[in-house]
Amino acid sequence: MSTYSASKTVALKQSAEEGAALSGRPPSLAVSLPSGGTGVFASLAWVGFGISCLWWPDIGDWPRTHQLAAAALVIAGAIFLASVAGNRLGRFNAGLQRRAPWLLASALFLTLWEVATAKFAWLPLPFFPPPQSIIEVYTDDLPKLLDSILASVKLQLGGYLIGATVGFLTGVSIGWSRSVGYWVHPVLRFIGPLPATAWLPIAFFTFPSSWSASTFLIALATGFPVTVLTWSGVASVSNAYYDVARTLGAKPFFLVRKVAIPAALPHVFVGLFMGLGSSFAVLVVAEMIGVKAGLGWYLQWAQGWAAYANMYAALIVMSLLCSGAITLLFRTRDRLLIWQKGVVKW
């Protein structure tokens, strides 16, 4: 199953382009073949991948080759059965049909990867390890990897929540109150554009622990875009909305809570999205430099030992986590902003 997650990651990276291509151009691969056809081809490609693992002898010592081959054949069987079962599987079948070209492509990619590394060594070691070595990381180095994931998630979540909350409240205050804006705006202009990583040296000796320093930096990286976009959202609310609410008896607090904030929410979510992106960058750098835990640290450690398979394995996990976080954010937005027309689908 781990190989499958690897192919899923590859799929995720390009899913945006794929979505556009599939919906934009009518005669795509998915449509031109009869129902279930692409699925059968995909399952054949996975059989091919499994055989490619077994056909040639390994160059080098890769203990997970047979397991990888077995997993590939199981996946091939599952795809085949699901394709043949067709409409009896209902929505699952529709999803499979849509993803079949991607399943096919990822099997081809994995086969190429396998052949180019473990079988003929066209790509130099240790920089390009074969797929089975990444499986090996997930099976043999799992405890350390899980610890790192937990540390990263904890640090990121704490910093992001603090940054987003402070940024949101600051943004609403400067957007609403002229006097708060007068005092906060210059500070924001002076400090905000500074990359949060530039604070690293100062943060690590002024804060009591590397953990609190990193939380501060992540909060800073999140807070700036959230503040600016919340502020611009609140500032751009049409006066007509305030006029309507005021003639209906609204007091200032009601105007902030029920007019300014809901009207600004689309902007706020852009800020939260941007903040998420920049906080990921700070998280990894902070973990590499100061905090002796987390996926960033794991990457650094793997590189120190020239354990490139561990690096790729950690990168894949990191990509899944970041992508998952963004998906979660977008789901939340879609739920809260259901009244908007035509929001971007992630």
Binding site: S238, A240, Y241, D243, L248, G249, A250, V259, P262, W339
Partner: peptide
């Protein structure tokens, strides 16, 4: 007003309820 200026994030019912809610 000339423009209805309904609050787009509120349903019709909640738009009508605005005044009573504010009070």
């Amino acid at each position: 007003f000339q423009d209805p200026t309904l609050f787009p994030w509120r349903t019709v019912w909640n738009n009508v309820a605005l005044g009573l809610e504010a009070q």
